[in-house]
């Protein structure tokens, strides 16, 4: 069964057709990569799926439910979490606190109960802390828990951002260039993490420019060029696809 269904999606900015009639499915439990030259509309597509932008036309279904017209903040509670191309960690908060924000949709203490510090909020808080620490351990960064997130190295920030997204317990994880700015060792580690995440039963859709990483970990690759889908296949066939080679290398 397909977890995410994108049907005939259109989005334009002024005269620029950023996404034009794109349709695809993401099957439950797979790693799907989205590639294409710069300006192909990958990030726009990501923003449409994660609710940052609203499509001009077309539909997006998640688990059979339409998500193309709901407010952005509700997307997370449907089970979709994301990371950003340019890391968007919360400044002046520790790594642990950043990850704890990820638990927001799984907790429910409101203004009044928090002000009165009702006992259920303590329990909730304790669980949030434990769960977040667990995630840091899983990703091997538990020693960074009390460090200000923005003072970490770039690679560590990427991992904390990944942990924050995982704290949402998503069914679908959207990764926008998870290896951007990472060195070779860090890129390899990131690949391993993504494979591990899939083993946890989380479906992954990622945008990435690092082809060796894409080819190694993904089950299916979708290629975009000038807002249009030009190919969708397994990594091996994509590497041989004439159209894809033309788009990337020129005639």
């Amino acid at each position: 069964m397909s977890l995410l269904e994108v049907k005939n999606l259109y989005k334009s900015f002024g005269g620029l057709q950023a996404v034009c009639d794109v349709s695809f499915n993401v099957q439950d439990g797979m790693i799907k990569a989205l590639i294409g030259p710069n300006g192909a509309g990958k990030t726009t597509l990501f923003n449409l799926i994660s609710g940052v932008l609203k499509p001009d036309r077309g539909e997006i279904f998640f688990n059979g439910l339409p998500i193309h017209s709901i407010p952005q903040y509700k997307i997370a509670s449907y089970g979709i979490a994301r990371t950003f191309q340019h890391i968007r960690l919360f400044p002046k908060m520790t790594s642990l606190e950043n990850i704890m924000i990820g638990r927001h949709t799984h907790t429910k203490a409101g203004f009044i109960s928090c002000m009165l510090s009702l006992p259920f909020t303590w329990k909730e808080e304790k669980l949030v802390r434990e769960k977040s620490m667990e995630l840091m351990k899983f990703l091997g960064v538990s020693e960074l828990a009390s460090i200000d997130a923005l003072s970490l190295s770039y690679g560590q920030q990427r991992i904390v951002e990944l942990a924050r997204a995982l704290a949402c317990e998503p069914k679908l994880l959207l990764l926008d260039e998870p290896a951007a700015g990472l060195n070779m060792r860090e890129t390899r580690e990131m690949g391993e993490f993504i494979s591990k995440i899939r083993e946890m039963g989380i479906t992954v859709l990622l945008v990435e420019h690092d082809m060796s990483l894409v080819m190694k970990i993904s089950d299916e690759v979708l290629v975009l060029s000038y807002g249009q889908k030009i190919a969708e296949d397994n990594p091996l066939s994509i590497q041989k696809n004439k159209e894809v080679i033309r788009v990337y290398l020129g005639e």
Binding site: Y73, I75, A76, R88, H104
Partner: peptide, 17 residues
Amino acid sequence: RALYAIHGAEDASRAMG
């Protein structure tokens, strides 16, 4: 925590629900 997140990065906090 959510308020502080809004202060720091409003778009990211929306993405976190």
